[in-house]
């Protein structure tokens, strides 16, 4: 077998045409996921069982099942119900794009809420006590003390999760979406050279992961200024 480098160069522009959809999936799901994560976190740490129980169940379900299965359940499973097909959400639920966004967002929400909870638990109790002693209220403590410290603590794990999400968007190709991996599969079907094409795709994902890592790294340095024990 021969390895055709020119095929890599010629296929990369075509593959990049799927990058837009990949990024759309990633950005939308990350954003919705983050919002879900914050609500789930607040429920999880509320100390009220009727808020904590659903949050825990949600996290348990979405962390415990493969994203691919979740996409299939939403895309193939839900339409089996009459009330879904006649419901107001049908225009969204019949679109593979939105099914993927829903599955990826729900996943991100579950994971990121646990990441943020780790950050919240990492905040020094003594610091919060000092704030209480100054008369700063519980909600103000959460906003002005807990959140900024917890976000900084969560950043490395959040970066990891975002990179995982980037790769998970490839699963959208299983429900007919022509994001990057989907595009690759159609090219392979035409050229019969899976090796070169999938290597090219892999390279693009790697570059994205590298950029995310760099971006988060810079953010982390910026947010860690207060930890550096340097004079001046």
């Amino acid at each position: 077998m021969t390895f055709d480098f020119s095929l890599i160069f010629s296929s990369i522009p075509k593959l990049l045409s799927g990058l837009g959809l990949t990024l759309e999936l990633l950005i939308l799901s990350s954003f919705i996921g983050l919002v879900l994560a914050v609500f789930t976190l607040l429920m999880r740490i509320s100390g009220r069982w009727f808020l904590m129980a659903p949050a825990v169940a949600y996290i348990y379900i979405f962390r415990g099942t493969p994203i691919l299965v979740q996409i299939f359940v939403i895309y193939y499973g839900l339409p089996q119900f009459e009330f879904i097909r006649t419901g107001v959400l049908w225009p969204i639920l019949r679109e593979p794009f939105w099914c993927c966004v829903i599955a990826l967002s729900l996943n991100a929400g579950a994971y990121v809420s646990e990441i943020l909870r780790g950050g919240v638990l990492g905040v020094d109790k003594g610091v919060l006590e000092a704030a209480s002693a100054l008369g700063i209220s519980k909600s103000q403590r959460f906003i002005y003390i807990t959140s900024p410290i917890a976000i900084r603590l969560s950043l490395p794990a959040y970066c990891n999760d975002t990179i995982s999400m980037t790769k998970a968007t490839a699963l959208a190709s299983t429900v007919t979406l022509l994001e990057m991996t989907g595009v690759a599969r159609t090219i392979v079907a035409q050229t019969f050279s899976p090796y070169e094409i999938f290597i090219s795709v892999a390279i693009i994902y790697m570059v994205m992961a590298w950029m995310l890592q760099k971006g988060f790294g810079l953010l982390e340095i910026r947010m860690s200024r207060y930890l550096k024990a340097t004079a001046g």
Binding site: V127, A131, I136, Y144
Partner: peptide, 19 residues
């Protein structure tokens, strides 16, 4: 138990502003 993420000035002014 100083607020680690705030400069000395903001450590002192936070409660003044909030409370």
């Amino acid at each position: 138990n100083l607020f680690p993420h705030l400069k000395v000035l903001d450590n002192l002014t936070l409660a003044l502003k909030l409370v």
